Lab assay of single mutants.
Amino acid sequence: MDSLVVLVLCLSCLLLLSLWRQSSGRGKLPPGPTPLPVIGNILQIGIKDISKSLTNLSKVYGPVFTLYFGLKPIVVLHGYEAVKEALIDLGEEFSGRGIFPLAERANRGFGIVFSNGKKWKEIRRFSLMTLRNFGMGKRSIEDRVQEEARCLVEELRKTKASPCDPTFILGCAPCNVICSIIFHKRFDYKDQQFLNLMEKLNENIKILSSPWIQICNNFSPIIDYFPGTHNKLLKNVAFMKSYILEKVKEHQESMDMNNPQDFIDCFLMKMEKEKHNQPSEFTIESLENTAVDLFGAGTETTSTTLRYALLLLLKHPEVTAKVQEEIERVIGRNRSPCMQDRSHMPYTDAVVHEVQRYIDLLPTSLPHAVTCDIKFRNYLIPKGTTILISLTSVLHDNKEFPNPEMFDPHHFLDEGGNFKKSKYFMPFSAGKRICVGEALAGMELFLFLTSILQNFNLKSLVDPKNLDTTPVVNGFASVPPFYQLCFIPV
Rank of each mutant, 00 (worst) to 15 (best):
S3M: 12
V6K: 02
V6S: 14
L9D: 00
Q22I: 11
Q22K: 13
R26V: 12
K28R: 12
P33H: 00
T34R: 12
L36P: 04
I42M: 08
D49I: 00
S51R: 15
S53N: 15
L54G: 02
Y61D: 00
P63H: 11
F65V: 02
Y80P: 05
E81I: 02
V83T: 05
E85S: 10
L87T: 07
E92K: 04
E92Y: 08
E92G: 07
G98H: 07
L102M: 09
F110S: 15
I112V: 13
V113Y: 15
G117I: 02
K119A: 10
K119S: 13
W120I: 05
K121P: 12
I123A: 08
F126K: 04
S127G: 07
L128H: 14
M129P: 04
N133H: 09
F134L: 15
G135E: 12
G135V: 12
S140F: 08
E148L: 00
R150S: 09
C151G: 07
K160C: 12
A161F: 05
A161P: 02
P166N: 00
G171F: 10
P174E: 10
P174G: 15
P174Q: 15
N176L: 00
V177H: 00
V177K: 00
S180R: 05
I182G: 01
H184R: 14
R186W: 00
D188L: 05
Q192S: 14
Q193P: 10
L195M: 13
M198P: 01
E199I: 13
L201F: 07
N202V: 08
K206S: 14
S209G: 11
Q214T: 13
I215W: 12
C216R: 07
N218H: 12
F219H: 04
T229D: 11
N231D: 07
K235V: 06
V237E: 07
M240A: 04
S242N: 14
K247W: 07
H251C: 07
S254T: 14
N259S: 13
Q261V: 15
Q261R: 13
L268T: 05
K270A: 05
K273V: 10
P279A: 14
S280A: 10
L287V: 03
N289G: 10
A291P: 03
V292C: 07
L294F: 12
G296T: 15
S303P: 04
T305I: 05
T305R: 04
A309P: 00
L313Y: 01
K322G: 10
Q324R: 11
E328N: 15
V330T: 11
N334H: 06
M339V: 11
R342G: 02
H353R: 04
P363V: 06
T364S: 11
T364K: 04
S365M: 09
S365R: 05
H368E: 04
T371F: 04
D373R: 03
N378T: 07
Y379A: 05
P382I: 04
K383T: 07
L391P: 11
V394P: 11
H396P: 07
H396Y: 15
K399S: 15
H410T: 15
D414I: 02
G416A: 15
G416C: 15
G417N: 10
Y424D: 04
P427L: 07
K432V: 11
I434E: 11
G437Q: 05
F446Q: 00
F448P: 00
L461G: 08
N466G: 10
N474C: 15
